[in-house]
Amino acid sequence: MILATEKRVLFTVITEATLEQPLLRELDRLGVRGYTISDARGKGNRGVRDAAWGETANIRIEVICTRELAERVLEFLHKHYYANYAMVAFVQDVEVIRLDKF
């Protein structure tokens, strides 16, 4: 059995855990219908970040949505957060079933 799929994008942002609540409010305001959040750790140009210590904790927010919505969110993040916070964001093409969820 082959399931029918629809094209969407997976928008991912990895950033400082202290931004979680403000970012979630903005995602809601921008029209995001759902998201997944997980702890993240790693190393980048702002040093080592681990999920165990509040001030250095990172989160990963993932959203499946239309490309247009992902671009609106990216533009907002770039304008309001990129200059002053540890943050990386990327978009990938995905195919989903249960399109009504996205």
Rank of each mutant, 00 (worst) to 15 (best):
Y82V: 14
A4P: 06
R33E: 07
R60M: 13
G44S: 03
E16L: 06
M1R: 03
A86R: 04
V96K: 03
T56D: 12
G34D: 06
R29E: 00
R33K: 15
E6G: 04
G31W: 01
K101M: 12
Y85H: 15
E6S: 15
L10Y: 10
T56L: 02
V91T: 14
I64S: 02
H80S: 14
I2K: 07
E26D: 09
Q21V: 14
V91A: 11
K101F: 11
I97H: 13
R29A: 03
A51P: 02
V73E: 05
T66H: 13
R41Q: 12
F102M: 15
V9R: 08
R41V: 07
V96I: 11
R33F: 03
F11Y: 12
G54F: 06
D28M: 14
V48M: 03
R8C: 05
E55S: 13
L74T: 10
V88D: 09
R25M: 03
D39G: 07
G34A: 08
V9T: 13
F90E: 04
L27F: 14
I64P: 00
E26K: 15
Y35S: 06
A70D: 02
V9I: 10
A70E: 01
C65G: 02
G42I: 04
T66A: 11
L23S: 09
T66S: 15
P22Y: 06
D93Q: 11
F76N: 04
G42H: 05
